[in-house]
Every structure is written in structure tokens, then in C-alpha cells.
Design a protein around this nucleic acid. Structure first.
Lengths: 133, 133
DNA sequence: TTTATATGTAACTTGCATAGTTACATTATG
DNA sequence: CATAATGTAACTATGCAAGTTACATATAAA
């Protein structure tokens, strides 16, 4: 697997779960289907659980399930749960002493914030359920 | 320096150049001001040169200059020159045998393309010149 | 109550992208 | 010719995410 495949893995898995919301799936099953490792699956799905999108049960007959109806889970929910940085611009700078640099950052930041709001709006309009077809 | 600072370095440098478009700056000067290394500067600015945004001259009294007026250089030009991946979603997959996965990818791709067009449009409306203040 | 089977998670390895560095060839100016 | 700049190859250092191993914990079934 390459980099930044968390979103990919999450959506793929949620897509399958949306088709059969009552069947629990184990991380081993999910990992085999997705061509990765059970621990990686648990790490990614763990974030979705923390966000209230999935539930997990330990032990015999345990596994992972949707925490609510597929129609009630939007793409924006998933993005936020994974804490995906949508843009590659590095925003974690300490304050610069250079006025030019500060001005540039400010401008970029404004544009990015604007675009991000726009994106989240669009992502919120799409549920996992309607993404399967 | 951390990761993905190419855009940051490029904009910062272009900002200064826009203020004094006729003064050539050496990669050593630029590196010192930006707190990095001359070779790194040459690598990043080299991309801007390939894109026709900057020119460079070797030898005594050489250095880097804007290739055209600051008003004619947009944020979109810079983004494209640096080949920045705007979104973190990994799109470089081989075709999947799983229909659910293909459907998810298709949906995401549609949303991303839409957002990206929107972003480029906004970036094209902002020139380096007007970003200084 | 024991056994099998799941998650949760820490600790480590691996792979890859980027920054940083060193060294040197090339080129242009004075 | 000496100086000072870019251009670039080759290497090291760093950081991050995926992948792996190992094991503690929890739960269901035998």
C-alpha cells in the first residue's frame, strides 16, 4: 500500500458495510479484502469509532459495524474523523519576522479556508449510502 | 525546515521579487533570508524557471529575477509550476476488481475534480503583486 | 471454567518523499 | 585569468505512514 490510503480504506470498508449494515466484520476479513494488515485496519477504523461512525466488539463473534444508518453518514463525517489535511500547504509555521512572508501566508490562508468551507459543504451533501452506486 | 515548504519558499521569494522586480537575487541571499540552503533554493526556483515564471543567470552578477510583471503571475501559476498535489486523497491506484471500491473512487474523484476546478479559478484571480499587502 | 477468537495497542521495521549537504562542472563577468 | 554565480549529481538526515510482531484484554461458545 502507498501513502495516504486511510481515506481510501475507510470509504471502501464503509461502502461494504452500508450494503449489509447488520453483519459485523472482523479486521482480518476487512484487511484481506482490502489487501492490507489487520492492525492497519484497526488503526483506521479506530478513528471512525472515536468519531461515532463505527462500533467495535471484542471477542468471539466480535468485529466492526456501522454505528448508525448509512444515510446518516456523510463524506464530511469521514474526512473529519480521519483528520485529513485537505491541502498540502504547510501551515504549521512559527510567526515570521518578515512582513512579506506574513502577508503571503495570510492570503493563502484566506483562500484555503474559503475553499475548505466549500469542500466540506459538498462533502456533507453526500452520504455513504448513495456512494455505492 | 519541515515538509512541503516548497510553496511557502516560492511565494515568500516571489513576494520580495515583486517589490523590486529589477534586482537579481542570488540563491545564497535568498537561502539566508528564508533560513535554508542555496541548493534547495535552486531546486525550487528551478521549477519556477521551467514554468516561465523566473529567469536565472549564471556567473558574476548573476542570480534570479521575475520573468514577467508581478501582476501577470498568479497563485495558480505557482501552484502548477510546483506541481502541488492540492488534495491528500491518493488517486494513484490500479483499477480495483471490487465494484464497491470503484464506485467510491468514482464519487470522490468527481467531488475532487469539481473542487479543484473551483480552487484553480480562485487562485488564478490572485496575482503575486496583490499578495504583498 | 476453559478455549478460541476478537479488539487495543505498544514497539519496531520498512519504504518513500523531501530537506539539507557536499562537491564539482559549467558559465559569465570584471 | 580570477571570481562568482547557476546546475546538478550523490549522498545523508528526518519525518511520516504503512506494515509487522507481540501480547494484554475482553467476550462468546464449548
Amino acid at each position: 500500500m502507498k501513502r495516504n490510503s486511510r481515506l481510501s480504506l475507510a470509504l471502501h470498508t464503509l461502502g461494504h458495510m452500508a450494503a449489509e449494515p447488520d453483519d459485523a466484520q472482523t479486521s482480518t476479513e476487512i484487511a484481506e479484502h482490502a489487501g492490507t494488515n489487520p492492525v492497519v485496519v484497526r488503526r483506521v477504523l479506530g478513528r471512525l469509532r472515536e468519531a461515532g461512525i463505527l462500533t467495535s466488539e471484542k471477542g468471539h463473534a466480535g468485529g466492526w459495524k456501522l454505528a448508525r444508518a448509512p444515510k446518516e453518514i456523510t463524506l464530511a463525517d469521514v474526512f473529519e474523523a480521519l483528520d485529513e489535511q485537505l491541502f498540502s500547504y504547510d501551515d504549521n509555521h512559527e510567526p515570521s519576522k518578515c512582513a512579506v512572508e506574513r502577508a503571503m501566508r495570510q492570503h493563502i490562508s484566506t483562500v484555503m479556508t474559503d475553499i475548505e468551507r466549500n469542500l466540506v459543504e459538498q462533502l456533507n451533501a453526500i452520504s455513504i449510502d448513495e456512494m455505492r452506486s
